[in-house]
Amino acid sequence: MSLHRTELPWATLRIVVGAVFAFILGPIVITAAVSFNGTARSVFPPQGFSLRWWSEALEWKWLDPLIFSLELAALVALVSSLTGTMVAFAMVRGQFRGKALVEMLLMGPLILPSLVTGIALLQFLHAMGLGSFVGFWGLLIGHVIICLPFSVRTVAIALKTMPASLEAAAASLGASTGSVLWRVTLPVIGGGVFAGMAFSFVHSFTDVNLSLFLASPGERPVTVAILSFLEFGFAPTLAAVSMISLFIPLLLIMVLQRFVPIGDFLYAQERPNE
């Protein structure tokens, strides 16, 4: 018997944790069940079985915003991870005037409520005569702003946890500065870059607070589409759409996790160099 197990009344803890797990998973399981409901109301337990809601969820009415969300999230992930990587390099490796200010600036979107960032950007775009940006461009800008801190952070952690001796070793073996970057540093921190990319994708794909204000009727992500549909009722179609929009990021993370331990970056502490 391991010593850890004796530290708390383990049996009691297990029951409590089991209950919390039921609380975590219950609503998702129930949503899944309702999506196969035989009736047109969101009732549980489901009455009968039908694939009607799933086939409705796969109509263009829903596929359009789903595809829009996918495209947006992919682009946001790309832009924010590329930018985030550059910035992380500068922040971890560089010494420059105004570094502390840039650092504050980068953390800003994480600290300010994203809803406020959304209405601020909405008004600002209108005030600058960029009202036509509302929709795809506004969403892209807004999402990159709120995703950037994640990308910078994951890459910065990867950079800081990479032993400095790796680059020194490469240099001693004859690799020039550019070659060290390309052949050693980037491959080694690749995990962090991918993790940042995955976070950004999921963050963009699931965002409500910003999209709420920056979407336009023709260019809206699936979360906003669901919200506006909710104003008319709670048809089980939504359960099916919800399931689809849950599976997309889940699938992405599962595939990525095979190559990169993304989870490590979730609660990794930033460690200073030795």
């Binding site: 001796s165 020194a168 240099a171 001693s172 073996l173 020039s176 500065t177 080694v188 690749g190």
Partner: peptide, 19 residues
């Protein structure tokens, strides 16, 4: 620069490229 000195360096943590 280090990459032009042609020295063999062995590091305390070995610094083997993990990838």
């Amino acid at each position: 620069p280090p990459f032009k000195r042609n020295l063999g360096v062995v590091f305390q943590d070995y610094a083997l490229f993990p990838h």
